[in-house]
């Protein structure tokens, strides 16, 4: 039950994109088509889960005072975590190039950009600071990344519907997307009254 509460609150109530405003770059950049949005969502889920698992290990083993060195090195979190994330993204890129080249081509430039997707670093840092229990931290990471996936697929499907509509000249392109994202964020605040558990 507790795990379900963590997932729902991470995915919907405090959605990573729509209420914490992390990972906006990929959210706006890759949401042209539902297919690529799905690919991006799944890639982000994979990277967030892997990154959280590895960074959780590094954090508890080396960086915290209770770790093997007995020194408080938590100020190294940012640099150590970003190293791990960059490595994982590189690894994912190689993996996709070898085994799923079609998805590799569809994601294009946005695949290496997951490195700078602040949602990934955001989740790793939040887990390191707020969760001392590994399974709970992983469940939180899963919820957050699923939340990202939901948000980007929703935006992509709205944008697909938008094609061919008569949009005022000054709102064409990115402005209308920002307005949609804003309306989605307002809609997602409705989840904050959700009473679970």
């Amino acid at each position: 039950m507790e795990y379900i509460v963590i997932i729902v609150s991470a995915a919907l109530i405090s959605n990573v994109v729509l209420s914490r405003f992390l990972g906006i770059c990929a959210f706006l950049g890759v949401s042209n088509k539902v297919d690529t949005a799905k690919g991006m969502g799944v890639a982000v889920i994979f990277v967030i889960l892997m990154a959280t698992a590895v960074t959780f290990g590094i954090n508890t083993m080396f960086l915290e005072k209770s770790g093997i060195f007995g020194l408080d090195l938590t100020y190294l979190q940012t640099i150590a975590f970003i190293l791990v994330i960059a490595c994982l993204v590189q690894f994912l890129e190689m993996f996709l190039k070898k085994f799923i080249p079609s998805l590799y081509k569809a994601l294009g430039i946005y695949l290496p950009l997951i490195t700078t997707n602040c949602a990934v670093l955001g989740v790793a840092l939040t887990v390191a600071q707020d969760y001392s229990n590994f399974p709970k931290g992983m469940i939180y990471a899963l919820g957050t990344s699923v939340g990202f996936c939901i948000a980007i697929v929703l935006l992509a499907s709205i944008r697909e519907k938008l094609e061919g509509n008569d949009i005022p000249e000054s709102f064409k392109g990115k402005p209308i997307v920002l307005i949609i994202a804003c309306l989605m964020a307002i809609a997602f605040t409705g989840f904050s009254n959700l009473n679970i558990g």
Partner: peptide
């Protein structure tokens, strides 16, 4: 100590990426 730690992490990552490439 912190410089050494980050360097070691970077080294491990470098070797890992080199092998997997």
């Amino acid at each position: 100590f912190s410089v050494a730690l980050i360097s070691i992490i970077a080294l491990i990552i470098g070797i890992f990426l080199g092998v997997s490439s």
